[in-house]
Design a protein around this nucleic acid. Structure first.
Lengths: 335, 335
DNA sequence: GACTTTGAATTAATCGTTTAAGTAATTTTA
DNA sequence: TAAAATTACTTAAACGATTAATTCAAAGTC
C-alpha cells in the first residue's frame, strides 16, 4: 500500500533517491539513506513485487510442476517430502513457489504459463516426461531442474536408483536369499534404472532370475501388487523374497500374503522402495530403501537458484543422491 | 516476450486498441478485433501478469498458508489432500497458488508477504491460529478463508468434528461397546470439538467415562499413542475400544497392542480419525472417520473466489463438511 | 583562479498493461 | 441539411518500481 512515493514525500526527496537508498546504491549520502530507511520501516513499506518484476525482469518466484496421474503430486508421499524440502530451501533465499498448471485462463501451456507469471526458474518432478508440453518447457530458455529424469544439457537431481537397487539386493542376498522376485513399476526412466540394476546385480551375485519372477504393476497400486503377488506365490518354485515397486504397493502384497495364512517374514520376505514414514510405524517395519528426500529437495533448490543467479558458472550436471537400506523386519535371515 | 506493442505494430493500430480488442471492449470494430486476435495467437502472445496486476490491482494469485509444526503441511496426509482439491478448484477458475511464508527477504510477516505479492486472497490451514502474525493476517482486509478454525466475521470451512465424533461413537456403541477410551490430540479447537462431542454423546448414550479413560497424546505421534495405550491396557478395568487422535497415531496403539500378544479386533478394538489412504490398504482395515477432504478443499476454493470476486454478496459463514464413518475391521461386534 | 573531479541528488525514460478522455469520420435524427 | 449521436480509433496518464543521463554544488588540482 505504502509506496516509494509516500516515502519520498515524507523525506522531501525524489522517488529515485528512495529507490537507490533502499537498494543501497553508492551515490546516496549516508544520512539520507538512514533517514529513508527509517521512514520506510516506520510506514511499513515493502516493495511491490509486480512493479519491481516488471522493470527488473525477475520475480523471485519459482514455478513448480508436480503432476501426478490423477493427483497433483501433493499427495504423493515421496514427492511431497521432496517438495517440502525444496520449498524450505528456496524460501530461505527469498524465493516463493507457485504451482505451474495448464488448466487456467485460455488454456496456457506450461511454457506459456511460465512466461505469463515470469518465473525465474522451474522445478519439474513427478510428471510424464514425454508430454510434449513438458518437453517444450525443458527445452526452453527458462532455468530448469528436473527430478528423477535426465535431459541432455539440463540439471537433474536423481535418486540413486541403480545404487539403491544394488544395495537392497545385496542386503537381501546377505541374509541368505537366492530366489528373489521383482514386481517393478510401470515403464519410466526410474523403473528402467531399477530393473537393469536388478538384473545386473543379480547376475553379479550369481542369482538366477527366471522370467516368471519379473512382473509389472503400477506404482502405488496395492491391488495390482496383490494380483502379481498371487501369481508369484502360485509358481511351482516360488521366490523366498519379493521386491515391490514401492512401499505403498508392498502393502498390497503383504495383504495377499497374510490372506493366504502366510507370515511375514517367517514364510516369505517382502521389500518395498521409498521409505515412507508410516512404514516405520507399522509392524512389521518395512524393509525398504529410504530415498533421501531431504537431500533431493535441498539440492534441487540450491542448484536451481545457482542456475538462476549465476547461469554462466553453474555446472550443468546430474546430481545423484544416494539412498539407504532401511533393514526393517520384513526380510527373514535364512538359516 | 511478445507484447502488445508487437501486435500493435503488426496490425498498424495503437497499443490501446490491442488491449481493448483482447479484452473484448465494445468500442473496437469486429474485423479489427478478429485481426488482432489472430495475430496474437500467431505470435504466441500472452499477457504479462505483472504488468496487468500493477494496473488492475489483482493478481489472480492466491496465497496458501499451510504450516505444520516442523513440516509445511505438505507432508500431512489430511491437509495435503485438502490442498490438492483446493488447488484444482482455483486453477480451473484461472487462479494460481503461491505459498505464503515469513522466512524470506527482510523477514516479512505473513501480511507483509501478502502485500508484497499482491495476493487476491488467502487460505489458511494447519497453523497455530494464535500466532500473532496469523491473527494479524486474518484481521486484515485481505479476503481470507480458514480451514478447521473459526474467526469472527470470517469464512471458515470446518470438518464436522462434533458430528464425526458422534457418528463414530454411535457406530461403536451399536456394535455393543460400552467401555470406550479416548486418547485425544493436543489442545486445539479441533480437539475441543471432538472431546466435547465425545463427552456429550457418551452421556447421551448412557456411557460411563471414567477420567482414566481420557488421555492426551500429540497428533500423528505413534510413540505417544503407544504409551497412552499401555496405560489404558494396564487399567484394572480396561476399555474394550480405544479412540485415537488420528489414523497415524492409531498405528502406534496397534503396535503396542500387538506387542502384548493381543489381537485386533478380537481382544481389543481401535478407532482412528481422518481416513488416510493407507488405512484402507493395510489389514486389518482401520475403522475411522473419513474426513471429506475433497469437499473441504473444493468449498474453500469456491468460497474464497466468491469472496474475492463478489465481496458484497458473498455470505460470510461457517461451512460444516460432514465426514463419514468408515467401518473397517478394527472394531469387534460384541456378542 | 580557472579547470577538473567527486558527491549527492534529480529528471526522465522505461517495463507492459489499462482506461479515461479526446478526436475524426460516419450515420442518424428532426 | 445542420446538429446530435454513434462508431472506431488514438493519445496520454497511470500503476510502482529501476536506472541511464543529467545537474549542480563543493572540493581538489595545478
Amino acid at each position: 500500500m505504502a509506496s516509494m512515493k509516500d516515502i519520498a514525500a515524507r523525506c522531501g526527496v525524489s522517488v529515485a533517491t528512495v529507490s537507490k537508498a533502499l537498494n543501497d546504491h553508492s551515490d546516496i549520502g549516508e544520512e539520507t539513506k538512514a533517514r529513508i530507511r527509517e521512514v520506510a520501516k516506520e510506514i511499513g513499506y515493502f516493495p511491490n513485487s509486480m512493479a519491481r518484476a516488471l522493470k527488473t525482469n525477475h520475480t523471485n518466484n519459482i514455478g513448480v510442476l508436480f503432476v501426478d496421474e490423477a493427483q497433483s503430486g501433493l499427495t504423493h508421499d515421496y514427492f511431497s517430502h521432496v517438495l517440502d524440502y525444496f520449498k524450505r530451501t528456496v524460501e530461505e533465499k527469498g524465493y516463493d513457489i507457485t504451482f505451474l498448471n495448464n488448466k487456467g485462463q485460455g488454456h496456457m501451456s506450461y511454457l506459456e504459463h511460465c512466461r505469463y507469471r515470469g518465473f525465474d526458474g522451474v522445478v519439474i518432478a513427478c510428471v510424464d516426461f514425454f508430454d510434449p508440453q513438458v518437453v517444450e518447457l525443458v527445452q526452453s530458455d527458462i532455468p530448469v531442474v528436473t527430478i528423477d529424469h535426465m535431459f541432455n544439457n539440463r540439471i537433474s537431481i536423481m535418486s540413486d536408483n541403480v545404487g539403491g537397487m544394488r544395495d537392497l539386493l545385496e542386503h537381501v542376498y546377505s541374509l541368505g536369499h537366492r530366489r528373489i522376485a521383482y514386481i517393478h513399476g510401470a515403464d519410466s526412466s526410474v523403473t528402467r534404472e531399477r530393473l537393469s540394476s536388478f538384473y545386473y546385480n543379480a547376475e553379479r551375485l550369481g542369482l538366477e532370475v527366471p522370467d516368471e519372477y519379473i512382473k509389472e504393476a503400477a506404482y502405488r497400486n496395492s491391488k495390482e501388487a496383490a494380483e502379481k503377488t498371487k501369481e508369484l506365490l502360485d509358481l511351482k518354485n516360488p521366490p523366498t523374497c519379493i521386491f515391490y515397486p514401492d512401499d505403498f504397493a508392498c502393502y498390497g502384497g503383504i495383504n495377499e500374503i497374510n490372506d493366504r495364512g502366510l507370515r511375514i517374514p517367517e514364510d516369505i520376505s517382502v521389500v518395498g522402495y521409498d521409505g515412507i514414514r508410516i512404514g516405520r510405524h507399522i509392524r512389521p517395519q518395512l524393509t525398504t530403501l529410504r530415498q533421501d528426500t531431504g537431500m533431493i529437495g535441498t539440492q534441487a533448490g540450491e542448484k536451481l537458484i545457482s542456475l538462476i543467479e549465476r547461469p554462466k558458472t553453474t555446472l550443468v550436471e546430474q546430481v545423484i543422491i544416494r539412498g539407504e537400506v532401511y533393514p526393517g523386519e520384513t526380510v527373514k535371515r535364512l538359516k
